[in-house]
Amino acid sequence: MLHNLIFDLGDVIIPIDLTAPIRNFATLANLPEAEVETIWQQYDFINHYETGILDDEGFRSHIRQLLKNDAWADEVIDTAWNTILLDLPVERIERIKELKQHYRIFLLSNTSPIHIRRVNEVLTAMGQPRLDELFERVFYSYEVRIAKPSPEIYQHVLSEAGLVAEETAFFDDNAANIRAAAELGIRAVQVQPPKTILDYLNENL
């Protein structure tokens, strides 16, 4: 019997474009996209940001330093960084609200504070609850200081929320994250286009 549902955020609840920040920072810095992508790969600052090693200001400082522009305001960096987030389909939020009547609902995301603030702004503008109101508990990599697919982050969620792995389903778009969860006995479902999370919920619940 399933009693608990854990959702990823990016490309499960909200569609994302991983290349959009690279394009936008390249435009801002007047650099080729390939050069910015190389910088992203060479320096591990995004992973450090998403695991809480860097705070917001540290993240922005790294961007200014690596792209050699000290004049960018915080808002300029945040806006470019948030271009990864595409339009949020309201029907997905409504479905999660329906599921709360029958399951314990959780969010587990490798993410950053800038992204979470923006998603909450969008939800509020839509007249929807914030993420921490929509879900019973939210688990963000930057707060837990561990990122998927590390087994420790799944064990943390199970322990903190008092969940039994075999009674829990996890929906994520990343194959490595799915494998790691499945190895702990969680019913892990990979969300892959052209299907959406709504399709997988209909098939599995």
Results as ranks from 00 to 15, higher is better:
Arg64Lys: 14
Lys68Val: 10
Lys68Asn: 14
Asn69Val: 03
Asp70Thr: 00
Ala71Leu: 04
Ala71Asn: 04
Trp72Gly: 00
Ile77Thr: 05
Thr79Phe: 12
Thr79Gln: 15
Ala80Phe: 08
Ala80Leu: 05
Ala80Asn: 08
Trp81Met: 13
Asn82Leu: 09
Asn82Pro: 05
Asn82Lys: 08
Thr83Ile: 03
Thr83Asp: 13
Leu86Ser: 03
Asp87Trp: 03
Asp87Thr: 14
Pro89Leu: 04
Pro89Met: 06
Val90Gly: 03
Glu91Met: 07
Arg92Asp: 08
Arg92Glu: 09
Ile93Phe: 01
Glu94Lys: 14
Glu94Cys: 08
Glu94Val: 13
Arg95Val: 12
Lys97Ala: 07
Lys97Met: 14
Glu98Gly: 02
Leu99Gly: 12
Leu99Cys: 06
Leu99Thr: 11
Lys100Ser: 15
His102Val: 10
Arg104Lys: 14
Phe106Ile: 02
Phe106Val: 01
Leu107Phe: 09
Leu107Ser: 09
Ser109Met: 04
Ser109Ile: 03
Asn110Pro: 10
Thr111Trp: 04
Thr111Ala: 04
Ile114Trp: 10
Ile114Tyr: 05
Arg117Ala: 14
Arg117Lys: 15
Arg118Tyr: 15
Val119His: 04
Val119Ala: 11
Asn120Val: 10
Leu123Ala: 01
Thr124Tyr: 10
Thr124Asn: 12
Ala125Gly: 07
Ala125Cys: 05
Ala125Met: 06
Met126Thr: 00
Gly127Asp: 02
Gly127Arg: 02
Gly127Val: 04
Gly127Leu: 02
Gln128Ile: 07
Pro129Glu: 13
Pro129Leu: 04
Arg130Gln: 11
Leu131Lys: 02
Glu133Ser: 14
Leu134Phe: 07
Phe135Gly: 06
Phe135Ser: 07
Arg137Trp: 09
Val138Arg: 00
Tyr140Ile: 08
Tyr142Thr: 07
Tyr142Arg: 07
Tyr142Ile: 09
Val144Asp: 09
Val144His: 10
Ala147Gln: 13
Pro149His: 13
Pro149Asp: 11
Pro149Gln: 12
Pro149Trp: 13
